[in-house]
């Protein structure tokens, strides 16, 4: 009984660790897409940021500087996306794909050239990474059965970025639904012409949204290479940007449901490593590939309207052309 409780605790603990980059990227997608700019490029921005963070931390030995570099690199890509999609009204999906592919190539080329380790960056020492924080009283309460160990194992012992990501969910909800900026942001994704009529610049709002997305993807990337991992590896995002996009869709472009979708995907990921070769009663051995594909299958089913209906922001994907 106690054994399976601790098994559950360690599962939940991994779930939060794995959900963090997804959540940050999905919230990035939230801002961009609610403003009407489709963001396929979450993956590329995260990858570029992960590389910038690891490279900077390797040179300077500072995780904080790494985070700043990550945000900077991600913002550059975000600006490029805005330049193509907002200023030049280019195809948003094509622009996102271009950013993803460029980031994949550039990180590998620069990584190889600068560190000569086959695209990896050197292993970062603990001082150049975001360390785990022990929350107040965690040690004291550890001995208390059930709740104490839950607090110690699951709530405490994460790095600062995990708590930041979780705190960003209510903050995002507040900004989006309780502030003037949020109202305008959502309006520009549904009916940009109406926003324009009210005398508010559509491009300016969309640029702000795209830059917020860049900021959040930057943090997500830094998390991958300097908090969860200890260095950069070629293509280390491995589809997490697309998975975040799927979580955003599964969460129907709303912050709290998006968080739940991220936690679900992360739990599936955490289970997958634990279920390798385990025989389930009545089911036989569950193929790990099925669990791996589950988030994508769920997204397809949801989008196809087989489980509820996910309706994207009305103006998403459409460049705004001001009437003369």
């Amino acid at each position: 009984m106690m054994d399976s409780y601790f098994w559950l605790l360690s599962l939940l603990d991994s779930m939060f660790r794995l959900a963090t980059p997804l959540l940050l990227a999905a919230l990035a997608g939230f801002f961009s897409e609610r403003a009407g700019v489709v963001d396929i490029g979450l993956e590329g921005k995260m990858l570029m940021a992960a590389f910038a963070a690891a490279a900077t931390a390797a040179f300077t030995g500072s995780a904080g500087l790494g985070l700043l570099a990550a945000i900077g690199a991600s913002l550059v890509l975000a600006l490029l996306h805005g330049f193509a999609c907002i200023t030049h009204r280019g195809n948003q999906v094509v622009s996102g794909v271009a950013l993803n592919i460029t980031a994949m190539g550039l990180t590998a080329v620069l990584g190889n050239a600068w560190f000569e380790m086959g695209g990896r960056t050197p292993n970062l020492p603990a001082t150049a990474r975001f360390g785990e924080l022990t929350l107040p009283l965690a040690e004291t309460l550890r001995g208390i059965p059930v709740l104490g160990s839950f607090y110690y194992e699951v709530i405490s012992g994460h790095n600062i970025l995990v708590y930041l990501a979780m705190a960003l969910v209510p903050l995002t909800a507040w900004v989006a639904y309780r502030t003037r900026f949020g109202l305008r942001l959502r309006a520009v994704g549904e009916n940009p012409a109406a926003v324009d009529t009210a005398g508010i610049s559509v491009p300016a709002l969309r640029y702000q949204a795209v830059l917020i997305a860049g900021l959040l993807c930057g943090i997500a990337g830094a998390y991958l290479s300097t908090a969860q991992g200890a260095g950069f590896q070629t293509n280390m995002t491995a589809g997490k940007g697309y998975l975040a996009l799927a979580a955003l869709i599964l969460g129907k472009w709303k912050p709290v449901p998006t968080l739940l979708a991220c936690l679900l995907f992360a739990a599936a990921d955490a289970l997958q490593t634990r279920l390798q070769g385990v025989v389930m009663p009545g089911l036989g051995e569950v193929p790990v590939q099925l669990i791996e594909a589950l988030p994508y299958l769920l997204t397809v089913l949801l989008l196809a309207g087989f489980m509820g209906k996910a309706i994207p922001p009305k103006a998403s994907g459409r460049p705004y052309v001001k009437e003369r």
């Binding site: 190539g105 080329v109 695209g119």
Partner: peptide, 12 residues
């Protein structure tokens, strides 16, 4: 991977 960079830039 320089080829991949060129690919991305061409798509852009």
């Amino acid at each position: 991977e320089l080829v991949v960079v060129i690919q991305g830039v061409v798509i852009l």
